[in-house]
């Protein structure tokens, strides 16, 4: 994956978080990540298919997940019930969808798969793909959201 391909994901994450939560997140430095890594406690995964394939993975602590879902639901802090998990899944769906729109402006057409959420401690994620990048987003008092992007051009 080139850094050019990660750009739309960074822009989409910042703009969707700002639009939904009213907080402009501060994006940290993009860093390479090994394809197997220890994830955060709450992970939302969206699949990408089409001219690029792979995953956009949104990782956060349970506390941050509760705060982010709470902000989306107009509450101070949510419990991770069905509604809160759905809000987090939709957040990932909106970010990845917006990134796909930005990619399409470069002639790269992609589709998404519906998001999945994983919760737990000491989870190892193994991505069967080439290079993987991680970008941290500090969302004010809500905490840290880590965006891991793992995409490659499909083999045909």
């Amino acid at each position: 994956m080139t850094s050019l391909d990660a750009g739309p994901f960074v822009s989409a994450t910042a703009s969707v978080l700002e639009s939904l939560l009213g907080i402009r997140p501060a994006a940290g430095r993009r860093e390479a990540r090994p394809p197997t890594f220890m994830s955060q406690e709450c992970v939302v995964v969206t699949g990408i298919t089409g001219m690029l394939e792979g995953y956009a993975i949104f990782g956060m602590s349970v506390v941050t997940a509760c705060r982010v879902a709470g902000a989306m639901l107009g509450q101070e802090e949510a419990t991770l019930d069905e509604m809160a998990l759905s809000a987090l899944a939709e957040l990932a769906n909106m970010i990845t969808g917006n990134a796909a729109s930005l990619l399409s402006q470069r002639g790269i057409l992609c589709d998404l798969t519906p998001p999945s959420i994983l919760n737990g401690e000491d989870m190892h994620v193994s991505l069967l793909t080439g290079s993987v990048f991680v970008i941290p987003f500090h969302i004010g008092s809500l905490g840290l959201l880590e965006l891991t992007v793992a995409i490659r051009k499909p083999f045909r």
Partner: peptide
């Protein structure tokens, strides 16, 4: 009403 805003 969708997150997929591509022109196509």
């Amino acid at each position: 009403c969708t997150a997929m805003g591509q022109k196509q």
